[in-house]
């Protein structure tokens, strides 16, 4: 069984008026089936309001489905009395780096998760050292998080999740508030975790360039999963993507337009190198 499995997942945001009567109901995620196996690098794409963050919060039991079910590492989130046991398996990194760092010193923040789980002191230090090493932040361990750059803060946040030794990391638009350098740093760290430690990564983003290296891509629109496949399969359907208000990487777009104009090119070109090779063959 995969690490994350969802069947007919549905979630409604319900708005209540002053008297506690249901006033408004908005379905953010609807009829979503999802299977993720251990060690995969998954990307979830979608426009603002497509329900991708809501879906992400289900994988960590921060939200419990209105209908349908989701299993994380074999546990049904709706039936688990101790939700933090699920959260320990599936860590989550959020968008705003400032609002998820709890400690006043980098190493103390990384130790926060293990402290909550009741890990003995010596083991906490071991985990903290290892996690900081894994994201390349060991040199900053005694610094105050306020004095770090955005990319460094996000790497600290990732280390904080790693210290809980999860099987899966969910990153909810971790690069949305970062500059291009910070984005590169964070993505590099995430890819390394996936390759070296074999951690399942679920990356939620709306930057197309970030999903090229993923094993599998899900595209969401208005609460539904509308497309899924490898990046190459997804990006060969340029028109369909455009109908979901998503762009394709610039190179892919260029290749697609050249093809429309009559140049003989294969579908789904993802990198500049591929395009050059295809043009010069």
């Amino acid at each position: 069984m995969g690490i994350i499995k969802a069947r007919k997942l549905k979630y409604d945001y319900i708005k209540y008026d002053e008297n506690g009567q249901q006033q408004d109901c908005y379905t953010a995620v609807d009829q979503v089936d999802l299977d993720v196996s251990q060690g995969q690098f998954i990307a979830i794409l979608g426009h603002n309001g497509s329900g991708k963050s809501t879906l992400a919060k289900h994988m960590n039991a921060l939200l419990i489905p209105t209908e349908g079910s989701i299993w994380v590492d074999g546990r049904d989130t709706a039936a688990e009395p101790e939700l933090w046991k699920i959260r320990q398996k599936a860590g989550m990194v959020f968008q705003n780096p400032d609002n998820q760092i709890i400690g006043t010193v980098v190493e103390e923040d990384v130790g926060f998760g293990p402290e909550n789980m009741g890990v003995p002191t010596d083991a906490i230090w071991e985990r903290v050292n290892k996690s900081l090493e894994a994201v390349g932040m060991t040199a900053y361990r005694h610094r105050s998080p306020n004095k770090l750059s955005g990319g460094q803060k996000q790497r600290v946040a990732i280390a904080g999740v790693m210290a809980m030794q999860p099987k899966c990391i969910i990153l909810d638009e971790p690069t949305a508030m970062l500059d291009p350098n910070g984005r590169k740093e964070v993505l590099k760290a995430v890819h390394e975790l996936n390759e070296k430690e074999g951690i399942t990564v679920i990356l939620i983003t709306h930057y197309m360039e970030e999903v090229i290296d993923a094993d599998r891509v899900f595209v969401m629109d208005q609460g539904h999963v509308v497309m899924q496949g490898t990046p190459r399969e997804i990006f060969s359907k340029v028109e369909e993507l455009k109908s979901y208000r998503l762009d394709v990487p610039q190179v892919t777009l260029l290749a697609w337009e050249l093809k429309q104009a009559g140049v003989d090119l294969p579908d789904g070109i993802l990198t500049t190198k591929e395009l050059v090779n295809a043009l010069c063959h």
Partner: peptide, 24 residues
């Protein structure tokens, strides 16, 4: 910010002071 932070703390298994160990 408080709302975000509360969610981030929950995501990192925070469930009050019981059974909590200390790093330092």
């Amino acid at each position: 910010r408080a709302d975000d932070l509360a969610m981030a703390m929950e995501a990192r298994c925070y469930h009050g002071g019981e059974n909590r160990t200390q790093m330092k």
